[in-house]
Design a protein around this nucleic acid. Structure first.
Lengths: 149, 149
DNA sequence: AATGAAAACAGAATGTT
DNA sequence: AACATTCTGTTTTCATT
């Protein structure tokens, strides 16, 4: 699947998504065209799904962050409502096992906005919220699993 | 705080973190040096916290993904153990209100690895796991809140 | 996968509103 | 103070080996 060079590339690009192919080629000891071709294939194969600038939620005024478990099923289920899923307050959404149908990470500017959001979500099923106090690990790079070494 | 141009820049760089300043300057109708300076200041102010390649978990063999709530407190609390927090299986960690101390998103190659991880986490408090079936919204860009417009 | 040439780009200095 | 223009050195891309 992925060889050692691919993993080194993934590690570097996860740490700094704006690395130039030139610099990347130095770090993985390959020529620039070779590394560019590797990256292109990682993208094509769906290993790299995109490059994203990460934005601090507090810094842009999204001071209320929460995990919301949705207890919904059947035709009203949140997952069947395209418009509801498109709401920008939803930052991530995971479908899960257990009592809940899915878990949402949401970010809003205020508790008043949060109340409104919960009311809207309640059209699809019972929302159960947990407030996020802080994010000690907001994001961490994926590293090579032991099993593959 | 952030004006309309800043938000256009944030939108573009969240969608494609590898955009050149040249291309970005075209999209936001500004000169390349002006846009580069804007980006530099967004980074300096902590609005943009980094640029990361996003990797598909399935594609790199992390087929078991779960949300783990940790019920822990006091000196054994997971949040006080640097070494435990450094485990690469932990992809995100949120400190939350409610019964749980924190919620972890973890990714491992197999159920056997997951069992081992849960056993290790149990040293700090009672872990309660929910398996992630799929991620309909694995990541979404932050957009300008209504309140600021 | 490496090399070399042409096009595109980044960064610094300077000038403009 | 924020932006545009210009210039120089890199970087990217594509052809070729």
């Amino acid at each position: 699947m992925l060889d050692a060079v691919d993993w080194r590339i993934l590690t570097e690009l996860q740490a700094d998504g704006r690395l130039s192919y030139n610099e990347l080629s130095r770090r993985v000891a390959l020529s620039p065209p070779a590394v560019a071709e590797r990256v292109r294939r990682l993208e094509e194969r769906g290993v790299i799904t995109g490059y994203h600038a990460h934005v601090d939620l507090d810094a842009v005024g999204l001071s209320v962050v929460a995990l919301v478990q949705m207890g919904c099923y059947g035709p009203l289920c949140l997952l069947r409502d395209e418009a509801a899923l498109a709401r920008p307050e939803i930052l991530r959404l995971y479908r899960v096992t257990g009592d809940a149908c899915c878990v949402l990470l949401v970010g809003v500017p205020s508790m008043a906005h949060f109340e409104q959001l919960i009311d809207d979500l309640a059209d699809h099923g019972r929302p159960s919220s947990t407030m996020v106090l802080s994010s000690p690990i907001p994001w961490r790079a994926v590293s090579r699993p032991q099993a593959e070494r």
